[in-house]
Design a protein around this nucleic acid. Structure first.
Lengths: 142, 142
DNA sequence: CTTGACCTTGAAGTGGGCTTCAAGGATACC
DNA sequence: GGTATCCTTGAAGCCCACTTCAAGGTCAAG
């Protein structure tokens, strides 16, 4: 795939793909005929991983480290992945929150205006849900 | 709750809460004795909603509109919520991707080093998953 | 009655993730 | 051959979500 194709497949702009490539997060091959960058399926996976980690607040330099380890097949020591592992408690609750939002959005589209659930209810459910991180104590997330 | 308490409960900094308040996304009551801002449970819900929407690439001005409609109990017309509804196709796949990452992270912690699944496998699964969209137009990020 | 940890405000500053620019080359279609 | 749409590069620019600053007020503990 070329930049624009990868960008479309990954749901970002071509400029974003170029940016990640310049920063070394993606390492495309080159079409020897014209120097164009060529991305494979793995690049799409990397792109999606980047996008997800970004959405969790991980910065590009940390993501680059993670991807570099992936390239080298480094041994997986959980303290090596600190920026990721730190996020772990938040991910599950983020998932639950997104699910609540998704359910709400879908109910908007299905109910045609008449009996739609209120946004206030969504907010209420987000506020009273199991907090992501309690100070200390056991997990509580499954 | 006061700022710092809300911030802790919501997983953000106190400065972030203050910022959202200044921008009118949160509308705390006041402690009449000292002018301190007081947040209730609903504010936590709003804060979590803001955080989720931000993670989906929605900007603060759009989020403010959404919250304002929520305050007014405006009728739910799906085209009114355009910035949100546009995100709908992405949310489900984002959820799946986060689930994949969460599973992977947990397997790191459980397997103690020996039989850990590789990051490459995670990336591969992210690359070959059902794509978020079929439409054209690159972005989808706002 | 001081120390320290909280809180207030508006204004100004910062950082980072893109975007755009400038100057070109490649490819495809009419 | 136009021309329209893709692609390349580094550098410069921009946006905006926070952060920090400055100058205070509150309050509980010792």
């Amino acid at each position: 795939m070329r930049v624009t194709e990868l960008a479309r497949a990954g749901g970002v702009t071509a400029e974003t793909v170029r940016h990640y490539t310049r920063e070394g997060l993606l390492r495309p091959q080159r079409d020897p005929r014209n120097g164009y960058q060529l991305y494979d399926e793995e690049a799409l996976g990397r792109l999606r991983l980047i996008d997800c980690l970004r959405s969790l607040g991980v910065g590009l330099p940390d993501i680059k480290k993670i991807l570099t380890w992936a390239d080298q097949g480094s041994p997986l020591l959980s303290d090596t992945y600190a920026p990721l592992v730190e996020q772990r408690p938040y991910i599950r609750s983020r998932i639950h929150e997104l699910q609540a939002i998704a359910r709400w959005l879908e109910s908007i589209d299905h109910d045609d205006g008449s009996e739609a659930p209120s946004l206030k209810q969504l907010i209420e459910s987000l506020g009273s849900a199991q907090p992501a991180i309690v100070t200390d104590g056991p997990c509580g997330c499954h």
